[in-house]
């Protein structure tokens, strides 16, 4: 498998949210607006790339039996880095995302890629795989965030282009489930066509 397919498979064919259905908690929890979705997506991308890189570097040193705890420690370290940097430089976004920043640790995508890809492949390929998967995740979150923002308040990235109040329910919790349900149904339909 060459680098290009490693990169693009995460974007579309194996999109972590729409196809693999991994990492649903942040997907539903933070996508009240496109900007929040993008911020969360990029934070996860950083953790994915760095943890894939590190796991691939140390894969030959770790005994097989303790590999999962070791991966979790690696991932948790990078999540702490993101947490501290975001708190210092982007306090507004940090407040919006809140609990979901530390919860990147238990995002199944990150551990899943470390176990399924980075622990078996070279450093370069692992980093590219992490970048592709991360950007696919960010793309899905931004798309869902934009959908909810348009339906809920008639705006994208805070720019209002539809007058009126919109359907408030899409900004609230139930709208997250409903919007994602219809998005996945639409993507299933497009894949068959």
């Amino acid at each position: 498998m060459n680098n290009l397919t490693n990169f693009t498979k995460g974007l579309i064919k194996e999109n972590p949210v729409f196809v693999l259905l991994l990492g649903m908690c942040p997907t539903l929890g933070v996508t009240t607006s496109a900007l929040n979705g993008l911020g969360m997506g990029l934070a996860t991308t950083f953790v994915l790339v760095m943890s894939n890189l590190s796991v691939s570097l140390i894969k030959n040193v770790i005994p097989d039996k303790v590999r999962i705890p070791s991966f979790i420690v690696v991932i948790a370290s990078f999540v702490t880095v993101v947490e501290l940097v975001m708190q210092a430089y982007l306090p507004a976004l940090f407040d919006q995302l809140g609990l979901f920043i530390p919860l990147i640790v238990v995002n199944c995508i990150v551990l899943g890629r470390a176990e399924a890809f980075a622990s078996k492949n070279s450093i370069g390929a692992s980093a590219i795989d992490g970048l592709g998967m991360g950007l696919g995740f960010a793309f899905a979150l931004t798309l869902l965030g934009a959908t909810r923002e348009v339906l809920g308040s008639g705006a994208v990235f805070g720019l209002k282009f539809i007058q009126g109040d919109g359907m408030l329910v899409f900004v609230l919790a139930p709208g997250a489930f409903i919007a994602l349900g219809y998005l996945i149904a639409m993507i299933n339909r497009l894949k068959k066509a």
Partner: peptide
């Protein structure tokens, strides 16, 4: 197209 996960998500939305 709605079978499986999509309809489950929408039911969860209604439950919410």
């Amino acid at each position: 197209g709605m079978r499986g996960i999509p309809i489950a998500l929408i039911s969860a939305g209604i439950l919410a």
